[in-house]
Design a protein around this nucleic acid. Sequence first.
DNA 1: GCCGTTTTCGGCCCGACTGTTTTCAGTCG
Length: 577
Amino acid sequence: MENAAIADIFDEMADLMEFRSENPFRIRAYRGGAQAIRDLDEPVAAIAKDSGRNLADLPGIGKTLAEKTLTLLETGKLPQLEELRRAVPVVVVQMARIPGLGAKKAAKLNERLTIESLDDLKKACQEGLVAKIKGFGKKTEAAILDGLSIAKQASERIYWAKGDELATVIGEYMRQCKTISQMEWTGSYRRGRETIGDLDLLVVAKDRTAAMDHFEAFPGRSQTIVRGETKISIRVAGAFQVDMRLVEANQFGAALQYFTGSQSHNVHLRRIAKDHGLKINEYGVFRVDDENQVANEPIAGKTEQEVYGAVGLSWIAPELREDRNEFEWATKNKFPELIEMSDVVGDLHMHTTATDGTATIREMADAAIERGLKYIAITDHSKRVAMASGLDEERVRAQWNAIDSLRSEYDGRLVILKGIECDILEKGGMDLSDDCLAEADWVLASVHYGQKQPRDQITERILGAIENPHVDCIAHPTGRLINRRPPYEADMEMIMKAAKANRTMMELNANPARLDLNDIHLAAAKRHGIPIVISTDAHSTDGLVVMKYGIKQARRGGLTKGDVANTRSWEQMKGLQ
DNA sequence: GCCGTTTTCGGCCCGACTGTTTTCAGTCG
């Protein structure tokens, strides 16, 4: 059983325990355990097998969760989970996803009314039955009816790239509001998570009412969820939630830290503050005396640097704030110097009109020069990908000849490499002959068919490609599409060991729907010492723009310039192959 | 359920907003 699957089970247990009003700290412990296992950069199964190590030594995992993990590894099942699933009706879980309803209210509704589906709930609201229950009223009833229609949309997380577009549009609109003197996006968007659940804007404004009015007048707004003294939430583009918080200028750093999260990062930071006799909230850092009295005046808060500095830590890049290794690094002030967009000098995965791209080699080359790149590899599909009219050996050689004759024209400006994205066949082996692959400057190997093969089979296929001496890099190594398609069942630990042993690189595909490898895998690859290649997989000249999303993901994985191969010149790259 | 320079019990991050309340629970982040 993979780490992610075990983590999902602990998370589900935490969710279900909420419906049973269990001790909230016990619930938090399960969530903490889930995160600890999800964030491991090695398989928990490997630790369990190692007689010299103990699962309970992992932070956040104690005796109980260690035992449950072992049970899951051995049997694939957990009796306590089955029990919880039986105890909590599915419809209650569904109800709790409606904005405004939580576990407690959903459980109460189920207890007082006969509700077996969301349709039953709708009917109960329409008949006025909900408003009669103690603790519920007319407004809650109306809110549930409203929430029912957007429950699915509202709970959907969007790609970071899509969030980036929205944030840009809203940001430009908000900048027209003259009373706003300071403004910054916070939350998971600032941390660069691959998906975004909502957007959070932090603002300093002289006239708060005017700032809120301006926000509420955003042309894309469909609804105002709440509006108070310091916080307003609206829905835009259908059901997507955008929050704005107003703070004083001397609180900006504290609020920025607070709202950037992650939640578990904040919990950890506040615990450290407590040990220092301090208290951190969104208004600043405050001294707490022996009597537990909190001082009126903050000792820090204007900048994030001040806030972290107050507890003896150096500033932590938002991409690292997931309560993984960042506090250890901050204590020693030994952070990885995270990669920057300007470090990238080459792009080694792109398509042309020869297969499913929309631009010619020349157009891609010109676009690459405009972006300041020094080299690109043209990597069209191989023949197995018939849908994209993949290249057979004759056509790929013709393309390489064309590249040869273009080279002099681009001499000194851009190196164009003869590449291929060669399919790893379902039955194993490469789609083009070794003789052919040997003629290429750059060979990507990737799985497009038979993605649902069992673990052993698909792992073997990928291992075969890694061991092929002509293959330079494994493209989109897990095949996942965010929110749409799960990763291959492949054994990533085995794949990484083989990649290291065979000097095969691994791709971070920067397409916002892929971002493959993910942050955890990137950290694992770094631990193994495998060079990562960040590539756009562009199918048009505009497609080259996605490199920035890859950089964001790489930073979350803790990668430095040195960890990423295409920050080197092509001459130096050849040494890695 | 986890954890320990307060170590085997007793804590566990912190606050805004809403609705239905007459002082607070639930939800959300």
